[in-house]
Computed example of a mutant assay.
Amino acid sequence: MFEYHGWINVQESAGADDSADGDVLLGRISETIGARIREIDSPGLLDLRWMNGELFLHLGGFRNHSDPEVVDFFGEVGRLAPGSYGVMHVRDDEDRGHENEVRVLRMVRGRVHEDVERALSPCIPVLEEPYPG
């Protein structure tokens, strides 16, 4: 089982930029991310939209097997827009050594760092009861 939920505030840089050039660049980044979303064509949630003048990406899904493309895409957005920040939680029971954890990917200034989400791990017994046996 592979479950993921996240969001990114897509920013072309970490500095304040209200210029027309900044808007054009962020518009191009939006087009590039939108094209990648269409390429991925995931049955999960990949929603890119403008809200109050800011660009946000929301991700979510629940699949039978691991989908490394969605995790790679999370990092790709940071490389395209190095001022971006956000989080994504991933639970992957096929990830050896991490099958009983929820992992959190934190994006700060476009760079992704991964760690255990302590509030949701270990999955058994925090989220689910142990299997009878």
Rank of each mutant, 00 (worst) to 15 (best):
L45A: 04
L45F: 13
L45M: 14
L45E: 08
L46Y: 07
D47I: 03
D47F: 04
R49M: 09
R49K: 14
R49G: 12
W50K: 13
W50R: 12
M51L: 15
M51I: 13
N52P: 05
N52G: 06
G53S: 02
F56M: 10
L57R: 01
H58E: 02
H58P: 07
H58I: 08
H58S: 10
L59I: 09
L59C: 07
G60K: 04
G60C: 01
G61K: 01
G61I: 02
G61S: 08
F62D: 13
R63F: 15
R63P: 01
R63L: 15
N64I: 15
D67L: 11
P68E: 04
P68M: 06
V70P: 05
V71E: 04
V71Q: 09
V71M: 05
V71Y: 06
V71S: 03
F73Q: 07
F73K: 00
F74G: 10
E76D: 11
V77M: 11
G78F: 08
R79M: 12
R79V: 13
A81W: 10
A81V: 06
A81M: 03
P82V: 10
G83I: 05
S84I: 05
Y85E: 15
Y85R: 13
G86K: 00
V87G: 07
V87S: 00
M88K: 10
M88N: 06
M88P: 06
H89M: 02
R91V: 01
R91N: 11
R91D: 12
D92C: 08
D93A: 06
D93R: 05
E94P: 09
E94K: 02
D95A: 14
R96W: 14
R96C: 11
R96Q: 13
G97K: 01
G97A: 04
H98I: 03
H98V: 00
E99K: 06
E99A: 09
N100M: 05
N100K: 09
E101P: 07
E101F: 12
V102T: 00
V102R: 02
R103V: 00
R103K: 09
V104E: 15
R106S: 12
M107V: 00
V108S: 09
